[in-house]
Write a protein that binds this DNA or RNA. Structure first.
Lengths: 202, 202
DNA sequence: GCGAGACGGAACGGTTGCGTCTCGACTGTC
DNA sequence: GACAGTCGAGACGCAACCGTTCCGTCTCGC
C-alpha cells in the first residue's frame, strides 16, 4: 500500500547527528499506518517502532514525543496538497478543487487519519493549533482565492458571503468520503460540482 | 453541565436483578462525560466508574464491555433526536432541519463525541454497524421524507438526485459545528438554508 | 425486620506502554 | 583501521487499566 503521505525526509535535523534517512522514512510510514490502524489515542511509540522493525530509541532520537511527531509529520504531509491554480472559470476551478479534495480523502490512510486527528483536536489544544495553522489556514486561503477570482470575473456577486461559501466548497466531499465513507465516481463529482456552484451563487 | 443525552433509564434489564436506577443514570452521564473528555480509544471503565463515584463492578453488572456500553447508550441517545414533521414547504422543512441539526451538534458533549465515534467506526466494524443502523439510517429516512414531500409539492423535480441531496442537507452544518467547530448564529442558519435549497434545486 | 443482593472500595495477577538505558553489532568518516 | 555515533533488541522501574473476586455495608422488596 502507498503510505507515502507528504514529502520524504532526509537526514535530520540539519546540524545534528547523522540519522539514517531510510529509517526515518520507514518510521514515518509506520507512524501513518499505525495512526490509521488504531487512532491517535491508542497510538503507541512502541507499536510504531515495532511496525518499522526498529528499536524505540530510534524514534526518540528523532522526535521527543508522540504529539511532536504527529504535529511535524501531519503538517508536512498536509502542505504537500496545497495549490489551486486559475483554470479560467469558476466551474473549472470548483471542479478541480472537488477532484483534488476527493483524491486526497480517497487515500485509504488519509480518510481514517484526518477525522481521527480532527476529533483529537477537540481535546488537545496544541494539536488543534498545529492542524489549524498547518492545514486549515493554507487550504482556506487557497479556496478563498477561487472565490475571489470568481468575484473579479463577475461570476459571483460582490457581496458574496465568503465564510459560508468556503464551508460549502469542502463540506459535502468531506462528509461523503470521511464521515459516511461512501465511495464516489466521476459522475458524482460532476453533479456535486453543479450543486456547489448553485449554492455559491445563491 | 447538561449531560443527559437521550432518554433516562430505569432499572434494567427488565427481568433481571434490581439495579439502582439513580446509579445507572449516573453511570450513563459519567460515560458520556468521559467519552467527550478522552475519546473512545482512551476511555476506560475504571475512569467512568471513578467519575460516577462508583465501583467498577457496578458498571460490569450493567454492561459486559466498553463497546457494548457505547453501542447501547449512543443508539438510545441518537433515536431521541429523530423526527421531521411536515411544515408545509421545502423552505420551512429545511430551515427546521438545519435548526434541529445545529441544536443537536451544539451540545458541548455531542460535538466532541459524534466525530470521535465516527472516526472510531472506521476501525471498529461492530461499532460502525451500530452507528449506521441506529443513527444514520433513521436520520437518513427522515431527511428523505423532506425531499419526497418537496417532490410531491412540485418544489423539486421528479428526477431529483436523493443521494446527493441528502449529503447537502447535513454536511455543511456538520462541517461547521463538528469539524471546524466554529459557532453559528441564527443569521448563519438562515443564509445556510437559502444556499442548501439552491443546491437541492440545481 | 429479614434475607437477597447491589453497593463502594480494594486487592488480585496479567498486560501494555512509558521514557531511559545498556548491550554488542554495524556504518560512515576521516 | 580507529572511532564516534547510530543501529536493533530488550531490560529497567513505574504507572494505568484490564476483568474478577472478595470484603463489610446498606438498600430494597416482601
Amino acid at each position: 500500500m502507498d503510505t507515502n503521505i507528504g514529502a520524504p525526509a532526509g537526514k535530520r535535523p540539519p546540524g545534528g547527528p547523522v540519522l539514517q534517512g531510510d529509517l526515518t522514512r520507514a518510521l514515518e510510514a509506520a507512524f501513518f499506518e499505525e495512526l490509521a490502524a488504531v487512532g491517535y489515542g491508542k497510538l503507541s511509540i512502541e507499536a510504531v517502532a515495532r511496525r518499522a522493525g526498529a528499536g524505540k530509541a530510534a524514534v526518540y532520537r528523532r522526535w521527543p514525543s508522540k504529539q511532536a511527531m504527529t504535529i511535524e509529520l501531519t503538517a508536512r504531509a498536509a502542505t504537500a496538497f496545497v495549490r489551486a491554480p486559475d483554470r479560467g472559470s469558476l466551474r473549472e476551478d470548483v471542479a478541480q478543487f472537488v477532484r483534488d479534495t476527493m483524491a486526497a480523502l480517497s487515500h485509504p490512510l488519509a480518510s481514517r487519519i484526518v477525522p481521527d486527528l480532527l476529533a483529537e483536536g477537540s481535546r488537545n489544544a496544541e494539536l488543534a493549533d498545529a492542524l489549524l495553522t498547518g492545514i486549515r489556514d493554507p487550504r482556506r486561503e487557497n479556496v478563498a482565492q477561487i472565490l475571489q477570482r470568481a468575484v473579479e470575473r463577475g461570476e459571483l456577486p460582490e457581496d458574496t458571503d465568503l465564510e459560508l461559501c468556503l464551508d460549502f466548497l469542502v463540506s459535502p466531499t468531506y462528509w461523503r468520503l470521511a464521515v459516511i465513507r461512501t465511495p464516489v465516481d466521476d459522475d458524482y463529482a460532476e453533479r456535486l460540482t453543479d450543486k456547489i456552484i448553485a449554492a455559491l451563487k445563491a
